[in-house]
Design a protein around this nucleic acid. Structure first.
Lengths: 142, 142
DNA sequence: CTTCCTGCAAAAGTTTTGCATTAAC
DNA sequence: GTTAATGCAAAACTTTTGCAGGAAG
């Protein structure tokens, strides 16, 4: 259970670990892929109203507990942050929009880190993280 | 001018290259980064109404002329397809949401292509394209 | 107790759709 | 001339916000 980490993260930004926020973390911890807000609401059994979900997700992102992922459509998808979930990348399905998790490949990670640094130098961009996404058709949509 | 390519692409999917669609292609051809729909509308001087812009962009994507990019926020951003614009990647600014283009690095591209193939084998995903995005703060937001 | 979070409802913003008109071929 | 794209207006959908009530520390 990632509750300790979540509590610690919230504490860092002077936020409380309330019942609603705990429910959100629990839903995300039980998912094997990033979830949309409608999916989160359904999974929590209407224990969390929309507005609180959006507000709490924003807070959790701020606390470094949750990460927002954008797919091929423009619908917010949410997952636990890397230190709670492990480093991985995403497969985006162009037909149904679903995002699936995929394990990171160490060799690729090293190459990427180097390239990101290079790109940062060239552009004056302060790089915080990199993303590699593979886009295509998931097994269900083929 | 990418008009010939656009016309050809539309022809392939039995679509007409109309005045409105030409205007959209022209706006995107003149941009150095992916644009949101509001930005596109502003740039075209209200020559294209919202609904037509969305409808035409969908058609142009279908024709392989335009590509949709998703940033850190959930707002659609559009740019010309790779064969009209050249291969490149994106820098996403987490504070203002702007997406800037960045030239691709050949060495990295090779590593990525190999990794994408590997990931495809492991997951049963039919990979169509890969994306590398760097996320951070742009020079204006630092 | 005091402060912050929640919940409802309504607003704001982007994207989609129906239908009559207009333009493309 | 026929078919398909457009333009307007209004709907649908996700996300944001105001404000009174309730929970957390």
């Amino acid at each position: 259970m990632p509750h300790e980490e979540a509590a610690a993260g919230l504490d860092r930004v002077d936020q409380r670990y309330t019942r609603g926020r705990r429910a959100l973390v629990e839903v995300l911890a039980g998912a094997d892929r990033p979830l949309t807000v409608p999916e989160i609401l359904a999974a929590s059994g209407s224990a969390v109203p929309q507005s609180s979900a959006y507000r709490s997700l924003t807070v959790l992102i701020d606390a470094g507990v949750v990460r927002r992922v954008t797919g091929t459509d423009d619908m917010g998808r949410f997952e636990l942050a890397e230190h709670l979930r492990g480093h991985h990348h995403h497969l985006h399905c162009v037909s149904c929009g679903t995002v699936a998790d995929v394990q990171a490949v160490p060799r690729l990670e090293r190459a990427l880190a180097a390239a990101a640094e290079l790109a940062a130098e060239e552009t004056g961009f302060a790089v915080m993280e990199h993303r590699i996404d593979l886009v295509g058709h998931c097994s269900g949509c083929r």
